[in-house]
Design a binder for these strands. Structure first.
Lengths: 138, 138
DNA sequence: CTTGCTGCAAAGCTTTTGCATTCCT
DNA sequence: AGGAATGCAAAAGCTTTGCAGCAAG
């Protein structure tokens, strides 16, 4: 099992203010893919005076540090994933936007030399699109 | 070779007004992944009085019809791809946002029964992240 | 005549920014 | 005290919407 987000942050030299701790706390757990707004709402329940700007800037810092992964799944708002394991992908309901983790053993097909267009390659993510049961019947 | 977007639209019963024709024209060609704003700008060069709202609504309709694919690659603005072939994926520069097509022979790994979470599966898209040559050296 | 498309402007949602204040060592 | 983090409010970027006018069958 991988260490939790909060544990990882303590192990780095990252100043854990109460606001930052609450943001990390809210993002803790498996299969968590919250929008910035959802994080702010959940954080507000614990720490009522936390501001939107702080939530946004914390999310951006953690993403920058590699402790969160930013997901652009639907063109609306970004989602934040505390699971940064490799070969970890997503299944999205195109109806309601709900997200499930998909953990594979194998990596996606590699690119041939001319397919890379001289770019330095980073990770490859797979987005599986689908429709969940609630969104099927109208 | 697949028929072009404009050809496909003519073959359906889609009313081709001058505005819609210009939008389709601008999106014609290989390796095209424009934002709505880019489409509007390019369209304005041809048809100066075309409005933003019309461009947006046309893009949404064509996406709905399955003639365009909406790409959420970077959490900023959506991009529109006239190439709707299967096993067609994307390589994105995380620096400048430029996009290249990637055409594979094989499909991504399939999901096991419990991985689908009872969802009806649609397409699977792979996003390869990387850094292009211009974005490498600071 | 009737339906649908367009343009304009306004509103909506998400995210970022500037600046004064507060917090923490 | 001094540097960093926070909150507030304003601004910025992207997209949708309501409505009046126009075009086309």
């Amino acid at each position: 099992m991988h260490p939790s987000l909060l544990t990882r942050l303590r192990d780095r030299d990252y100043r854990l203010t109460s606001q930052r701790r609450v943001v990390a706390q809210v993002l803790e757990g498996p299969n968590v893919h919250m929008t910035a707004d959802a994080v702010h709402q959940a954080a507000t329940d614990i720490l009522p005076e936390i501001s939107r700007a702080t939530v946004y800037s914390t999310l951006n810092e953690l993403t920058q540090m590699g402790e969160l992964r930013e997901l652009s799944l639907d063109g609306r708002s970004k989602r934040y994933d505390p699971n940064v394991a490799p070969n970890h992908h997503h299944l999205v309901c195109d109806g309601c936007g709900q997200v499930f983790d998909v953990q594979h053993e194998v990596a996606p097909p590699t690119l041939t030399a001319d397919e890379t267009h001289c770019m330095t390659l980073g990770r490859a993510e797979i987005i599986y699109h689908g429709t969940c049961v609630s969104c099927t019947a109208p």
